[in-house]
Amino acid sequence: MTLDDLIASMFPAGHAVKRGLRSTVHGAGRLEDGTEVALIGIVDRTPLTIDAAIEVAGYVLSVIEKGGTTPILVLVDTASQNMARRDELLGLNEYLAHLSKCLTLAALEGHRTIGILYGHAAAGALIATALSTQVLVALPDAEPSVMDLPSISRVTKLPLDKLTELAKSTPVFAPGLEPLFAVGAVTVRWDATKPLAAQLLTVLQAPLAQHDPRDAIGLERKGRLLAAPIAARVAMEANAHG
């Protein structure tokens, strides 16, 4: 699904989205009842550079600065973080962390943050964008990944065909929408054959967990069995001593 089709299907009542300097977008969409939703994003399957990260973070901050509780939709079709010496020299880790903190704080300030993953996102770029939202929606074309299988094969020294076989029985390492849904990273999958406006409204109106629910979701989906009980046990025991 193209960006234009995606936006048109989510906001038949109207939208105004501008292109930023570096394959970023920002603007707003209008729901049927007239309320506004802020739209920001990184698009065109572009690697997340320090320049793009700070631009998107600026859009998030400007929504917060306006006050209110306007929901923020984060449209995501990126690649991995930009792999360049210059970006690392200038502190790419700080730029990605800044974007992630801005999105996380926006949610805590009352702006419902919804990631719309309709294309690629990998590694650090996935962390700083899609995974920094409260609710992550994936379209059928979404291709999230941490690392591609050939790279995992190179590092783990396991043959690619064995990894491919292993990936069928566990969602813990393989790239793709299915495994990332199973572990609880993706909250909900949309049906692209039906109008997206109604599906968006459902997401906007669903009750939100007070705290990060992703470990519980992964447990429920049987894709990530240990994270929730381990985190809960450490949280309880760390405060019980002394």
Binding site: L126, F173, G218
Partner: peptide, 19 residues
């Protein structure tokens, strides 16, 4: 990388917990 998806998600949860 042997636990790429659950490791990545843990990092995202750590960031949220730090914030």
């Amino acid at each position: 990388l042997q636990e790429a998806n659950v490791g990545e998600l843990a990092i995202s949860e750590i960031i949220r917990a730090i914030v």
